[in-house]
Amino acid sequence: MPLGGCSGDFSALDPAGRSAASIASLWWAMLWGSFALFALVLGLFLAAVLIPRFGRGVSQKRWIILGGLVLPVPVLTGLTFYAFAHGEFLLRGAVSETDEVLEVRAVGRMWQWQFSYPSVPGSAVHTDLLHIPAGRTVEIIAESEDVIHSFWVPRLGGKIDAVPGHSNRLRIRADQPGRYGGICSEYCGTGHAGMHFEVQAHRQEDFREILTGGLHHD
């Protein structure tokens, strides 16, 4: 398969896993809500300026209480608490039951990623290429050897910073086998722009063999 296989493959709006999909639907909901609120505020502004006597029947205090409290308080409360629950869902790896999670160490350094699999004996260390099983939650343990980097595979889930001296965890998941683009999203020096990597999601039954070199994976 040519390398161009992952072209345009960085879109968070084209999710390929449950984590990314749930965030994408949150985005679409917020987008339509924002359109409505924007239209409302701008509509009121234009009406108040252009239409004589518009809105004069409503007292000033009422204007402020309706628009400044009654409108935003329920919207923000609903959104914020939904987002809390959503965050918990993502922290669990976008699965409701605690099923088995595969741990992967992702070590960032100027300017490449090295992936290793502590729980898979005999697995090789891969540079800029991450193999994961499809349909299973993967926990990335992000670490750094030099400056701060950030591990991000937009189609599979959120991002996590690799901070020197810390190891941070992020759960991602690919629903289907395939190739997904990954990128470093924290500025890490002159090589930052070129710090891409590729994620290959394999069928569960092929995964272990690919890792231990039993199956050719090109």
Binding site: F84, G87, E88, L91, E139, N168, R169
Partner: peptide, 8 residues
Amino acid sequence: FWLTLCPL
């Protein structure tokens, strides 16, 4: 009241 308290 209910959110994850500490790093995983």
